[in-house]
Structures are given as C-alpha cells and as structure tokens.
Design a protein around this nucleic acid. Structure first.
Lengths: 215, 215
DNA sequence: TAGCGTATGTGGACGGTGTATACATCGTAT
DNA sequence: ATACGATGTATACACCGTCCACATACGCTA
C-alpha cells in the first residue's frame, strides 16, 4: 500500500488509437475548413477522434500547437491549388507571354483558394507568431515550394523574359502579394460582399492587371 | 405569498452605474486595442466597469453585439487617422499634384493606423457579417465619411485632375484598397515580419506607387 | 407626496472551453 | 518474464458566454 491506490472504473475502451496525432490533425483541418481558425477547438477534435480531451496533450503541447499544425497543412493546400492553376496554364511556356500567363495563374490560384476554401485560407494566416511561408516541406505543395516562393518564381520568370525591369525586381513579390492578398481578404471579410460573385471575378482580373502594369 | 419569495442577500453596492453602456464600450475598445477582437471578452469588460457580468446584457444582446459596437468605433478611429493624414498634406490643393498627394495620404493614413493600432485595425475587420464601411455616422470620422469613402473621394479627385482616365475610374477603389489593405495585413499577420520597420515603410511607398501607376 | 411600473443591476446556475495532475494500460526491450 | 516508457483515462479547476429569477432605484402619474 505504499503505492498509490485510488482506482475507480476498469475502463474497457480501446486504448492505443493507432495514429492519434494524424487523426487529431485531420479533425482539426476539417474544423478549420468548415469554420476557420476559431472553429478548431481541441475538445471537439478529440471527440471526433473518439478519445478523451487530454489525450491530445500527448501529441500537441496546446491548442495553439495543434492550430499551428493545421495552419501548416492549410498553407500546403494553398500551394497545391496554386500549382494546379499553374499547370493548367502550361508550365513550360517561356517568353514574355508565358511569363505573364504564369503570373496570372499564380494570382488566380491564390484567389481561387481564398474563395473556395475560405476557412483554410483564414487559418493559414491566423496570427500568433507567423514565420514560415517558405520552403518548409510541411507547408509546401507538391513541388516543394511554398506560396511565396511560387510567386517569386513567377516574377523571376517575368524578369528573365524582360517584362519586368531588373531594378524593379527586388521586393516585387511583396507588392504583387499585397494586391492579391488584400483583394482576397476584402472579399472574404465582407467589405466587398455587396459585389456579385461574377463581378468579383472581373475585379480580380483587374487587380492582377494592376499588378502587371504597376510593378 | 402569492408573490415570489426567495431572497438571499441585501446587496449594498452602488447600483445605477451612470452610463454603463458607454463604460462597457470603452472597456471593449481598450481590450481590442491591446489584443484584437479575441481579447474583447465580455466578463472582463464588465469587471473593468465594476459591475457583474450579466449587467452587460441590459445594453448588449450578446458578446457579438458588443464586439460589433467596438468594431464600429475602430472603423471610426481608422477614418479619423486617415483624415489627419490628409489634413497634414494640405487638403485644399487641387490639380494633378494635389490629387496624387491626397491619394498617397489616404494610403499612408491607412497604413499608419494598421501598424500603430494593430489591435483596433484587426477588430475593424473581424468577420461575422460585415456590412458597413460607408457613411454610417457611427463608423465615420469627423468629416462624416468612412474609410472607403475617403478613398473614393481621393480617386474622384484624381479623375477630375486627369491623372486617372474616366473609363478606369469605376471600381478603381477596390483595386487601390486591395493593395494597401493586403500590404497592411501581410505586415501585421507576420509574413513580412522578417522585414525591418524601415524597409516596411519603403515597401509601403512602393505599394502606393504601384497603385498610382497600375490603376 | 405617495405609489407604482420599468429600466437597470445582482445572484446563482449551466454547459462549454483549455489545461494541470494523478492514474491505468499497453508495447517493447531487456 | 519483467520493468519501463509511451499513450490514453479520470478528475478537477478556472474561465468563458448566457439563461433565469430577484432586488433596487428612477421617474411618472395620481
């Protein structure tokens, strides 16, 4: 009796989930997809995994930590969507026309993801201590590149094709990114909700045109 | 005894706060200023107002309702900051140079607010059912105009001055707004956190230049 | 001036959340 | 076979938003 002796119930449940970490992550992704970052609540994720709340703490240090993992996944999905759009345009085409098409594809993919997977998109930018839009494999698409790097590559291509003066190349990704990101945010956050879905698309085109011309 | 008879304690506190609604709103604003939308928690606001949690429900239907009021105030502060920046540049100046200066002031004010009052800025765009960037006096600055309308006015001025072709005027505010808003978001949400504060300012300038040229 | 109705604040409770601490169970290496 | 570390459970706490019944005080009418 020197040992602790305060048992209660036998607990005949499964134990050993198999891959709980993955299950929790996927539950978290599903929650984020449906309701954005605030919707990824730890207890609900464990519930969906068929496990008691605290079990999560064996795999994630905190809710914030889980959310971070979900965000990584969201970032990766964003990159994949962008890659898909690029592929659709025909990746190999070089020359000025190809470079422009590529840049447009990057922007279009970004916007498509924001409008289609709003919850994940919001989650991808959920604030606390960001860090990481780059080549971290966890947050990259199939090509191994993250969203930011896909954009960078598109701009490099434009510079090589001569559509973008070399002296304006450095930092240009921030400008382009700002425009597209801002448009996406304004649409999903409401300010442009009065505008019809069709017009949204048209304005999106103009945003990208502004970038091409204004860089 | 037909009446309810289940009293408990005399309760000798103040009662009749004076203007609780205002106190709660201001507490909410302070919380949002310090920590963004998630930080405006109802119980804390009532605590700061020196009142029991439920008292809030006499003035706000829910936490969401309080948050909405705070957002209105944040929007109004944004408009004020923009107005201040416009005034600084010298409002009256017309002509092409004046129009450009005005547009720049609008953008600069927007960015200043985003970087200075990050919590309020985030709160101003806290999602659920947006609606209202326009002339609602509650969310306008001293001039009675909201942020969106200040931008619109600046673009009108540019069109009149001939710096912006008339056929490109319609919808131009969405393009300009997107660029500036996106830049602000990227800065405060982290992706550009690696960039130094000084460079941020420089890039902000380039964003506005891109807008001027790309519209 | 007395009384009363209503606006405003209080008290207590409920279900939900994140998380800490102690315990039970299981796979595995010795 | 056994001891141990990894994984899941049980229990508990503080905090949150919100519902309900009740207490109090202000301002109107009589």
């Amino acid at each position: 009796m020197t040992r602790k002796l305060r048992s209660k119930a036998p607990a005949r449940t499964t134990y050993r989930h198999g891959d709980l970490r993955r299950a929790l992550l996927e539950a978290g992704i599903a929650l984020a997809r449906a309701g954005g970052p605030d919707a990824v609540v730890l207890r609900e994720a464990t519930r969906r995994a068929g496990v008691v709340p605290n079990a999560a703490y064996r795999h994630f240090a905190s809710r914030q930590d889980l959310l971070e993992a979900v965000r990584s996944a969201a970032l990766s999905e964003l990159a994949k969507t962008m890659e898909a759009e690029i592929a659709l345009v025909g990746r190999g085409k070089s020359g000025e026309a190809g470079a422009r098409a590529n840049l447009r594809a990057v922007g279009a993919g970004y916007l498509r993801f924001a409008l289609t997977e709003t919850g994940l998109f919001r989650t991808a930018f959920a604030t606390p201590e960001f860090r990481g839009f780059t080549g971290d494999p966890a947050r990259a698409g199939d090509s191994g590149l993250g969203p930011f790097e896909l954009l960078s590559a598109a701009l490099d291509q434009m510079a090589q094709a001569g559509s973008l003066p070399a002296e304006r190349r450095p930092g240009a990704e921030f400008l382009a990114w700002s425009a597209v990101h801002g448009f996406a945010m304004l649409v999903i956050d409401g300010p442009l909700h009065t505008v019809s879905r069709g017009d949204i698309h048209a304005i999106g085109e103009r945003v990208i045109a502004m970038v091409e011309k204004g860089l």
